[in-house]
Amino acid sequence: MSDQSSQSENFEQLLRSTTGELIEKIEQGELIDAVNLLQQINDARNKNLYIEVGRLTRALHDAIRDFHLDTSAAVGNQEEFSDISDAADRLNYVIKMTQDAANTTMDKVDECIPVAEKLGQEASDLRSEWARLKRREMSPEEFRDLYKRMDLFLESTEQQAEQLSSNFSEITLAQGYQDLTGQVVKKVIVLVHEVEDSLVELVRMASQVDKITGIRHENTEQQTEVVDATPAPEGPAINAEKRGIDVVSGQDEVDDLLSSLGF
């Protein structure tokens, strides 16, 4: 780095020191010397330019290597997968894991609902029978019937409670996706940071070439087109509280906004 900045500093120094001399020579009418000086500046500039372009090429090569881009198509090696396509695979895996977990959880809940309903229904039926017994409104035959039903109810309650708790532990187990997907997402975050660092480095290298060749880039940040007024969907807002006023942070704010519009 220091080597590189000293290169362009050297060129700037040379430019500064020689310019004074150049004006002097021109004023004194020593045109041959002046042309020689110009030639010197030009040589130095070219030399620096070659060095910087060489550096940029090198950096581009390194960046591509650091991006772990899939150059196999260009190089003819089809066997290796790039980290980027690997990251896409990993994220697809996250989608699959979360979907499977959601489905398992909902399957188990669906199984539990009728069990709980049946338990409640039976208990409420038995309770009204029991109340009749307490009020001594029950015939001996009815009591024998209740006696048997009570036995069956206790037995099935035991079984159903077992089924419920087994479903509950399966629901808990299904949450294991959080650990696995968390690890995968962390790896992808690391890759994204690496790619960002490489890109920043590349931009820095390119700016050296711009400086020496005197290229000025027009501001390419174009104004947002207003042609299509439909706001593009962007998915869940991350850090909604920190984003301030453009994003609502919950249903209450949606309701406030809509009621201010006459809803």
Binding site: T230, P231, P233, G235, P236, D246, L257
Partner: peptide, 14 residues
């Protein structure tokens, strides 16, 4: 029923 929570989107939908 959406994750889109930008004010301009809610206004546009309304």
């Amino acid at each position: 029923v959406t994750a889109e929570s930008k004010r301009e989107q809610i206004v546009a939908a309304a």
